[in-house]
Computed example of a mutant assay.
Amino acid sequence: MTKVELVAMIAEDADLTKAQAEKALNSFVAATTAAIKAGDKVTLVGFGTFSAVTRAARTGRNPQTGKSIKIEAKTNGKFTPGKALKDLTAKKK
């Protein structure tokens, strides 16, 4: 699903114009990004949690030359699905 498709679904479901739905989606993304940058978590009960994860510095290997290289520490965003979302996407045995 693309952003345009998501905006169209939000607009239809919430009885908004596409411009209003896009503004709401952009606001959500901006607020979530700002919270993660500040080191906070954003938890949507039943859906999941957005958080920041720091990867430690490590030594890697250049696949072309085989030489060792230093890979610096880095902070990335992470999404952990909530129980309700896991249950919806779990494969039935």
Rank of each mutant, 00 (worst) to 15 (best):
T32N: 05
T32V: 13
L88M: 12
V42R: 00
A56W: 01
A21V: 02
T65C: 05
T33Y: 03
A84R: 03
D13M: 06
A24E: 05
G77H: 12
T89C: 13
R61E: 01
A11S: 09
T89F: 10
S27T: 15
T54C: 10
V45E: 06
R58V: 06
T54F: 10
D15A: 13
D15L: 05
A57L: 12
T59Y: 08
A31Y: 01
K78H: 05
A31G: 01
A56R: 11
A34Y: 08
V45C: 06
A56M: 04
A34R: 14
R58E: 07
I10K: 05
A31P: 00
A38Q: 11
V45D: 04
N76Q: 14
D87H: 07
A57V: 13
G48K: 07
L44Y: 02
K18E: 12
I36E: 00
T43C: 03
K70P: 02
K86E: 12
A14S: 15
T75N: 13
T54M: 09
T33A: 08
V42W: 00
A14R: 15
L25S: 02
K70N: 14
N62R: 02
T17Q: 13
T17N: 12
V53T: 08
N62K: 02
G48A: 08
Q64W: 10
R55I: 06
F79V: 12
E12W: 06
V42K: 00
Q64A: 15
T59L: 10
A57F: 10
D87W: 07
K18Q: 15
P63S: 03
K74G: 04
E12I: 02
E22N: 05
F47K: 06
G66F: 06
G60D: 10
R61H: 03
G82V: 04
A11R: 04
G66S: 11
Q20Y: 08
K78C: 07
F28W: 01
A73D: 09
K41G: 05
P63L: 03
D13N: 11
K41P: 02
S27E: 11
G60S: 08
D40H: 07
N26G: 09
A57D: 13
A19I: 11
K86D: 09
S27I: 12
T89Q: 09
K83C: 10
K41Q: 12
E22I: 00
G46R: 05
R61M: 02
S27V: 14
G39D: 03
E22H: 01
A31I: 04
A19R: 14
A35L: 12
A57R: 13
T75V: 15
K37E: 11
L25R: 01
N62Y: 01
N76V: 15
Q20D: 15
T80A: 15
K86T: 11
A84S: 09
D40A: 05
F47P: 04
D40M: 04
I69W: 03
A31L: 05
I10A: 10
D87M: 05
G77Y: 13
A73Q: 08
A19P: 05
A52Q: 12
S27L: 13
N26I: 01
K37R: 14
D13I: 00
A30I: 09
A34F: 08
K70W: 03
A34W: 07
G48V: 05
N62I: 02
G39I: 02
N26S: 07
A21G: 03
T17L: 11
V42T: 02
G48E: 04
A52Y: 07
T43G: 00
E22K: 02
Q20P: 06
K18W: 09
I69D: 04
P63M: 04
G77D: 10
K18P: 05
V42P: 00
